[in-house]
Design a protein around this nucleic acid. Structure first.
Length: 279
DNA sequence: GTCCTTTCCTGACAGC
DNA sequence: TGCTGTCAGGAAAGGA
């Protein structure tokens, strides 16, 4: 399930392989993947002959900067891009095909069909609802203790749910939320607006630290993630709590538990992450 | 504004 | 073996 580090790895690969390429035709095999424009034919007409100038990322969104439009793409759970020869067989999970002037094809695959793409004008991109509400990127230039404290002040829901809220910090998903809270020694069910100063400090530091390390490792491969080159991420060997249910905590040997918070599977060490403040 | 629930989807797996 | 039910989960939409 791609979160910021995985999307960044995909972005780097796509930009390396696609910069300067022209899209000669788009084939849509599953209409619902295309969120905008509503008319699939409009999507196909507008993207035809667009040149891929660069690829950016904002939170978990990929932004293909084309000649006249920006293609906003979200991989959700299992979306992935592959560049394949045009005569290679099309797998059953391929939903969108972009034919390129190189003779190759950029193919979008997605087992669960959760991913979405929107083609919008440069004028509309600044006001796009998916992007406009995103919080700061989890990098030290954008995310400070003060900014995060301010954002959490009014949040009465759990810190786990709050970290998954893209309007608070952009790019954190279920895996890194668990890792961040474990690192910061904060119980996932703590209410966001009850964190102490030192907890806010640890939380900010943990967000920056864990995301940075995961980006450098090329992301985490759980189940199916791979980048454009078919390479797996390396961060899974660094996971301290996610997916370690029943195993001893790396810090204190207490058995890691899995509970449900905000309807999400949530891993924690009940000893390191106490529900009372200053765990 | 904030929070909560539902929806979208398929594959894996448990249980019978 | 084959069926049914449950679970996994990011974002958006709609309701409270």
């Amino acid at each position: 399930m791609p979160e910021l580090p995985e999307v960044e790895s995909v972005r780097e690969g796509l930009e390396r392989l696609l910069k300067g390429r022209r899209i000669t035709e788009a084939i849509v095999l599953w209409d619902r993947i295309i969120a905008e424009p509503k008319e699939i034919n409009q999507f196909k007409n507008e993207i035809k002959d667009q040149i891929i100038h660069s690829i950016d990322r904002r939170g978990k969104f990929l932004l293909f900067n084309l000649t006249d439009f920006v293609l906003i793409s979200h991989l959700r759970m299992e979306g992935k891009y592959r560049i394949e020869k045009s005569n290679s067989s099309i797998s059953k999970h391929t939903h969108v095909i972009f034919k390129l002037d190189s003779g190759e094809e950029l193919r979008y695959l997605d087992v669960r069909k959760f991913g979405r793409m929107s083609l919008v004008s440069y004028k509309a991109i600044a006001k796009h609802p998916s992007l406009i509400k995103l919080g700061p990127e989890p990098i030290k230039e954008a995310l400070t203790i003060e900014a995060l404290s301010q954002a959490l002040k009014k949040r009465k829901k759990t810190i786990k749910a709050t970290l998954l809220d893209q309007s608070v910090v952009a790019g954190i998903g279920n895996i890194y939320a668990d890792e961040i809270l474990f690192n910061a020694k904060i119980h996932p069910s703590r209410k966001a607006n009850t964190l102490t100063k030192s907890e806010l400090s640890r939380l900010t530091y943990s967000i920056l630290e864990i995301i940075d390390k995961a980006v450098k490792a090329g992301g985490t491969t759980i189940r199916t993630y791979e980048n454009v080159f078919g390479e797996l991420g390396n961060y899974q060997s660094n996971l301290k709590v996610y997916g370690r249910t029943g195993l001893p905590c790396v810090r204190c040997q207490t058995i890691i538990e899995k509970i449900k918070v905000a309807q999400r599977g949530t891993h924690l060490c009940p000893n390191c992450q106490k529900l009372t403040s200053e765990g």
